[in-house]
């Protein structure tokens, strides 16, 4: 059961979106998020829906797979929809009962909010669905390289991220092993109330923590033995290079963003 944990789920297939440079995709996600906050009319939402549909089609990821990702935020979605639905003041009252007042403006606001949230989540999950975690960290490192000038340790952060990704399965295995070892000694993780269960986790967390510190020491030594000395004078085995499709991608993004800005200021 513990093995089912996946971080940043990646959908393995071949598509233009998969082959796009991770920096382009990062920028694309950012543009899409910004555009969602620019949209304030039915036409605006229609345009971004069309844009999103086009990208999903390009990604070759089944729509059902993306929609499933929405389950996790269902509660958040319901809360924000109901807030908007019941608490928006307006002139055209549709329903009035006791303290509940639903206005036409409220309905409109709630629908917009729901659409906005759904689009945001679908748009950004497309990023992780089409990019391997490795490409993602590479993209962040190269794309945010300029931040080194303001002393943000970009290389170190991305190195930490990729090492964390490498060690997640190992630590999951280890947790499994420790749990079994403690169960063999009579530990009980399945019964009792919430507090008792949380307490039962202590004998798992302590050894796990100790062993990860030990692993970290070993790994640091192994990295040093292989001449690791930070990001300076380091070359790359797989350098990121923009291709023609990336230029096209940026162009599409620019056109879309321009259209969204135009729609907002004109309507």
């Amino acid at each position: 059961m513990i093995r089912d944990i996946t971080i940043g789920q990646y959908y393995q297939t071949d598509s233009v979106l998969h082959r796009l440079d991770p920096r382009t995709k990062l920028m694309g996600t950012l543009v899409f998020i910004v555009s969602m906050f620019l949209a304030d009319s039915w036409i605006g939402y229609a345009v971004s829906a069309a844009y999103l549909a086009m990208i999903i089609r390009l990604s070759h990821v089944p729509v059902g797979f993306i929609v499933r990702g929405l389950k996790a935020v269902m509660i958040l979605l319901l809360i924000s929809v109901s807030f908007n639905l019941f608490l928006t003041a307006g002139e055209h009252e549709i329903l009035s009962f006791w303290i509940i007042h639903i206005t036409w403006e409220g309905v409109q606001q709630a629908v917009f909010m729901a659409v906005r949230l759904i689009f945001l989540i679908m748009g950004s999950s497309l990023m992780t669905l089409t990019t391997t975690p490795n490409q993602l960290t590479d993209g962040l490192e190269t794309g945010l390289g300029w931040m080194k000038k303001i002393h943000v340790p970009v290389h170190e952060i991305s190195m930490m991220m990729s090492i964390a990704l490498r060690f997640i399965p190992i630590l999951v295995d280890e947790t499994d092993k420790i749990m079994k070892a403690q169960m063999a000694r009579g530990a009980d993780f399945e019964s009792g109330n919430l507090i008792e269960r949380a307490k039962a986790l202590v004998p798992i967390l302590v050894p796990l923590f100790v062993s990860s510190v030990r692993r970290a020491t070993d790994l640091a030594m192994a990295m040093e033995a292989r001449c690791y000395h930070g990001g300076e004078n380091r070359t790359r085995m797989k350098p990121l290079r923009y291709a023609g499709r990336d230029r096209l991608g940026y162009l599409v993004m620019a056109v879309y963003l321009g259209l969204m800005i135009a729609l907002r200021s004109l309507l």
Partner: peptide
């Protein structure tokens, strides 16, 4: 505890990357 890369070939490339 001594393999850094998430793919075999990337791990082998780690040392050469470090020495430029």
């Amino acid at each position: 505890n001594q393999i850094i890369g998430t793919v075999v070939e990337e791990d082998v490339g780690f040392g050469p990357e470090n020495i430029g």
